[in-house]
Write a protein that binds this DNA or RNA. Structure first.
Length: 342
DNA sequence: TCTCTCACG
DNA sequence: ACGTACGTGAGAGAC
């Protein structure tokens, strides 16, 4: 209907099975051409929230406990992260207003309890700073600076308090993109700017953060020599395609080589923290429980009376799980439901 | 069972 | 000329 009848895009792309692509990015770009497009996007959002969460979660309540019990898989994700199934509690909505209503439904098991959420602040960028030992990024974190603002100041050559909202947004996109081994094309797409401009930003980035550029080259090089990369705790990811003659295939492996030590070391860190926290909870005979992990966040269901005890444990164990030169910052929130705690 | 889409970090 | 950011899991619909 959108492409054959309404002809909204003469250059519409197709999937490898020959269907028109209609992902969110595609439809958003067409929304101004016909009112029906925004209706489709809205419908998709509500359909997703209803089918995946609102309808499904209540059916997964265990009649014996009255609770939803997820399963955490320790040997699925190639980077060493956990994954969560039946249900997946690591993808509960938060980004949209309607989605946040779902998150509000996650409440403590007892009337006198609260939800406590503790998350690592900018953990992957801090780990990249540690792995690369980049002088300037380490300094920004040591000074407690807003890392995206600090990056913008470096990339655009302005004072840190002269950074505009636009510059900060671009710098934030670069910081994330770098962790994934992003290209100028990828950055231009995510920011909606010309490729040349994106290339300039990336060049400036590596000029300012020379240690990161060096680290990226080194990790790809060692991957080519060894056939694998390692996290801080020596978890390996083997990369069979790292020396492939096919550029596209090799490109994927090279991005994996860059990303896996960062994402995987963050996973190492939170796993050690979880072990240490659980031991402290048991040693101190506390009634509160650690109930969920969402990659850089731990969620607890605790009696309000135990709040100080839990804060002490968490603020001790999470930042010190793996000793590092870069400061590790943990943010804690509490509330009557998971959304409030965030 | 596979593909497409979309929810999260 | 081509493809193009990492890691997951689940529902709908087609086959």
């Amino acid at each position: 209907m959108l492409f054959d009848k309404l002809q909204l895009d003469p250059k519409a792309k197709k999937t490898k099975t020959g269907q028109y692509k209609t992902g969110e990015d595609v439809l958003s770009a067409l929304a101004h051409k016909s009112d029906i497009v925004q209706d489709i996007l809205d419908f998709r959002q509500y359909q997703k929230l209803k089918s995946t969460y609102v309808d499904a979660l209540p059916t997964l309540i265990n009649p014996n406990t009255g609770l939803i019990h997820t399963s955490y898989n320790q040997a699925v994700a190639a980077t060493g992260r956990l994954s969560s199934t039946n249900p997946n509690l690591q993808n509960i909505p938060i980004r949209t207003e309607k989605g946040r209503e779902v998150r509000k439904a996650f409440i403590p098991r007892e009337e006198e309890n609260i939800i406590l959420s503790a998350d690592y602040s900018q953990i992957e960028l801090r780990i990249m700073a540690e792995l690369s030992q980049d002088e300037h990024m380490l300094e920004a974190f040591a000074l407690g600076q807003d890392i995206h603002r600090a990056t913008a100041a470096k990339v655009y050559g302005v004072d840190i308090d002269q950074v505009t909202a636009d510059q900060r947004r671009n710098a934030k996109a670069v910081n994330f993109g770098i962790i994934y081994g992003q290209s100028a094309f990828g950055l231009s797409q995510s920011l909606g700017i010309p490729r040349k401009e994106a290339a300039d930003i990336i060049e400036q980035y590596f000029n300012q953060y020379k240690g990161i550029k060096q680290y990226m080259s080194k990790v790809v090089e060692t991957a080519k020599e060894n056939g694998y990369v390692e996290t801080i705790l020596k978890r390996r990811r083997y990369l069979r395609d790292i020396n492939s003659a096919n550029m596209t295939v090799r490109g994927f492996a090279e991005r994996n080589a860059i990303n896996a030590p960062i994402q995987g070391s963050a996973a190492d860190m939170i796993k050690v923290a979880m072990i240490n926290i659980q031991k402290d909870i048991e040693d101190q005979g506390l009634k509160g429980k650690m109930i969920m992990q969402v990659h850089d966040e731990l969620v607890f269901d605790i009696p309000e009376k135990e709040l100080d005890a839990f804060k002490n444990i968490i603020l001790h164990r999470m930042p010190t799980a793996i000793p590092m030169r870069v400061p590790i910052v943990v943010e804690i929130g509490i509330g009557k439901n998971w959304l409030e705690a965030h």
